[in-house]
Nucleic acid binder design. Structure first.
Length: 663
RNA sequence: GCCGGAAUAGCUCAGCUGGUAGAGCAACGCAUUCGUAAUGCGUAGGUCGUCAGUUCGAAUCUGACUUCCGGCACCA
């Protein structure tokens, strides 16, 4: 007499063990149709599972996250079935659920083409329409291995052979086709209504590039076609933010085939943004107690041998350039240079901590297939810094770095982070005790900052533990930017010392840290985060002055001249075009603030303001406009609100000063 | 680097099975002088990614290379 408790607390009694499907049908026909699986006492089961004793039961539908996963998993099976029907000889490998979809790997003599994909998808639709019931059976492990081996599925056989002996092996199948699977699955293929194959790829067996290449097919599956459509829409929207697209449209940067892949050309408008970022960055670093350095881009090979890079980092380094019998190495990192400055003379404990920062351009060999817009390049500028400190200073220094990181990210509109603390790996430099103490210092700093973090045990570099910070952008994607790494190794290799209070020589700890990561990559992230609609303080063109007719040419020049003198980045549009055309043009260029200048404005010494975000804001005297965009934050102008930086510092007006000095 | 795809004007793309290039937008010129997301007309712009090959003839077919795109692997 099983008593079944449902999630709402209600109780149902049965004379004999009912299946999940039967209970669902008892509750209602709608639920029966929607039931994909059951959760019995916390365990996911198929709908034909019989509940023999008292239990808690939840009917799993596509509205549950796990229901959606089951749906996707079953769709992956459907894909495998279709592929094996259409391409005899294709072996199945694995077909897991991933974010928003699934993939299935096959071993096949050739890759699948987009045309193949169409055929496969069509076959999948047929199989779904046929509403084939899914069945499952349990097999002894050795029998299962034998079964798959006998039908030529060598990868499956190998996978099963790797499953612990005592675990039962289940096979799921439909329409005469079978696959190894833990389950559960949807009751019949008719439940699979909204799916689409999205792409193909090569993939390596067991994820190792020295292994055989497999053929992967990606797909997505949803509870209904509406969700599928909205997912595809979401992809489209994300594609519109693509920094490569926007970078070209707004004339921000390019990659030149003639120069080689992975090398970034910053066009004037991109360079303006970079300059604002850099100026801001320098300013905040100086305030935070950093000294700013410049160091060379190449150095003798011997330096890289001493630092160890010539060994463990060789793969990523360009070959040295020979001159007068000596080899010069293009730098892939900045740290050895900062170390040389440290070691240039004897240091006292009174000088510590020393915080040295540099916007250091480095070059790394990246495999051609890895290059991607600004996100993965071969030459890039790190916002690098090295802090040399005593062991007991670590915690405070980490805290200061975290403070600075959050401040800087906040200014760019990033408020959400995910943080990982990575600890000692198997093979590590430095005594265990110091690792222990240093890791505790990192942890304590994170706690004092009240930053949530995940632990990655053994994930640290061999030379020290680290904290990685990922930022979350406007559409929820995460980007790895900051890394804060302790280093017990380089101070050792270079024999760094300082004179302690008691006169003894001691070894400093080194902290490597980058906040934005690389300027190129961060710029790419910024473009996508803002979809090219940069806040006022970053916009390459902040204000466009648009003359309605040629009569206002002199006035438009005067207005833009005044604004330029005040430090704004202004463009003056005197073309013989309609005002509608100019507005459209500068709107598409994402200029945050447009000034429409006609006879009326000229007569009154006024400007008609139109903001990118809020549209027409009406006319106001130029002086008022200037006061409102310069003084108490541009936020007093409705719709232009992102120009004031956190912390009450008005960065733009500082920039105005420096631009006046430049004049 | 690996798998698959792509490369035609600054951009987006057309160009059927081989007969030596076309549109829209952008640019430039002229006309127009206009009030909040596209005024009209005209001009110019291409060794069809590069190099070989097949062919009487190649943007079109073949191969190699380069670059880019989607992934894998790498990176963090």
């Amino acid at each position: 007499m099983p008593r079944i408790t449902l999630p709402d607390g209600s109780l149902r009694r049965y004379d004999q063990a009912p299946s999940v499907a039967e209970v669902a049908a008892d509750i209602g026909p709608g639920l029966a149709r929607a039931a994909l699986a059951g959760r019995v006492d916390g365990r996911l089961v198929d709908t034909d599972f019989r509940i023999s004793g008292d239990a808690e039961l939840a009917i799993v539908t596509a509205r549950d996250a796990e229901g959606l996963e089951i749906l996707r998993h079953s769709t992956a099976h459907l894909l495998a079935q279709a592929v094996q029907e259409l391409f005899p000889g294709a072996q199945v490998v694995i077909g897991p659920v991933i974010e928003d979809g699934f993939y299935y790997d096959f071993a096949y003599e050739r890759g699948f083409t987009p045309q193949d994909l169409k055929r496969i998808e069509a076959r999948m639709k047929e199989l779904a329409r046929a509403d084939l019931p899914l069945s499952h059976e349990t097999m002894a492990r050795d029998d299962a291995v034998e079964h798959f081996r006998s039908i030529g599925e060598r990868y499956k056989a190998e996978i099963i052979a790797g499953i612990p002996k005592d675990e039962p092996i289940t096979l799921y199948g439909q329409g005469g086709w079978k696959d190894l699977c833990r389950g559960p699955h949807v009751p019949s293929t008719g439940r699979l209504k909204a799916f689409k194959l999205t792409g193909t790829s090569g993939a390596f067996w067991r994820g190792d590039s020295s292994n055989e290449q497999l053929r992967r097919i990606y797909g997505t599956a949803w509870a209904d076609s509406k969700s599928l459509k909205s997912y595809l829409k979401r992809l489209e929207e994300a594609a519109k933010r693509d920094h490569r697209r926007i970078g070209a449209d707004l004339d921000l940067f390019s990659i030149q085939e003639e120069a080689g892949g992975g090398l970034v050309f910053w066009h004037p408008k991109g360079a303006r943004i970079r300059r604002v970022i850099e100026d801001f960055w320098r300013d905040r670093h100086q305030r935070a107690g950093y000294e700013l350095l410049f160091t060379p881009h190449i150095a003798l090979e011997g330096l890289w041998q001493r630092s160890g890079h010539a060994g463990f980092y060789r793969e990523s380094m360009y070959s040295p350039v020979e001159d007068e019998g000596r080899g010069y190495q293009l730098r892939p990192m900045n740290c050895p240079f900062h170390i040389l400055i440290y070691r240039d003379r004897l240091r006292s404990h009174r000088e510590l901590p020393m915080r040295w920062a540099e916007l250091g351009t480095v070059y790394r060999r990246e495999m051609s297939g890895a290059l991607h817009g600004l996100m993965r390049v071969r030459g890039f500028t790190q916002d690098d810094a090295h802090v040399f400190c005593a062991e007991e200073q670590i915690e405070d220094e980490i805290l200061r770095i975290l403070d600075l990181a959050l401040e800087v990210f906040g200014a760019f509109g990033f408020e959400e982070f995910s943080t990982v603390l990575a600890t000692r790996p198997e093979k590590a430099a430095g005594a265990e005790a110091i690792w222990e103490r240093a890791t505790r210092a990192l942890e304590s700093a994170l706690k004092r900052k009240e930053m949530k973090f995940a632990l990655d045990p053994g994930g640290g570099a061999f030379y020290g533990p680290k904290i990685d910070i990922k930022i979350r952008d406007a559409i929820g994607r995460q980007w790895q930017c900051s890394t804060v790494q302790l280093d017990f190794n380089l101070p050792e290799r270079f024999g760094l010392e300082y004179v302690a209070a008691d006169g003894s020589r001691r070894r400093p700890i080194m902290i490597h840290r980058a906040l934005l990561g690389s300027l190129e990559r961060f710029f790419g992230i910024l473009i996508e985060h803002y979809a090219g609609r940069f806040p006022f303080w970053l916009a390459p063109v902040q204000i466009a002055a648009l003359a309605i007719t040629e009569r206002q040419e002199a006035y438009a020049r005067r207005v833009s001249g005044t604004l330029k003198k005040a430090g704004f980045r202004v463009e003056c549009d005197l073309r013989s075009e309609t005002i509608g055309y100019k507005i459209r043009h500068h709107t598409l260029q994402r200029v945050p603030c447009l000034l429409v200048l006609g006879d009326r404005e000229e007569r009154e010494g006024a400007v008609a303001v139109r903001s990118l975000e809020a549209g027409d804001l009406g006319s106001m005297p130029l002086d008022d406009f200037m006061a409102r965009v310069t003084a108490e934050g541009l936020g007093s102008l409705q719709g232009i609100s992102e120009n004031q930086l956190p912390g009450g510092h008005q960065y733009r007006s500082k920039e105005a000063d420096s631009s006046q000095r430049r004049n």
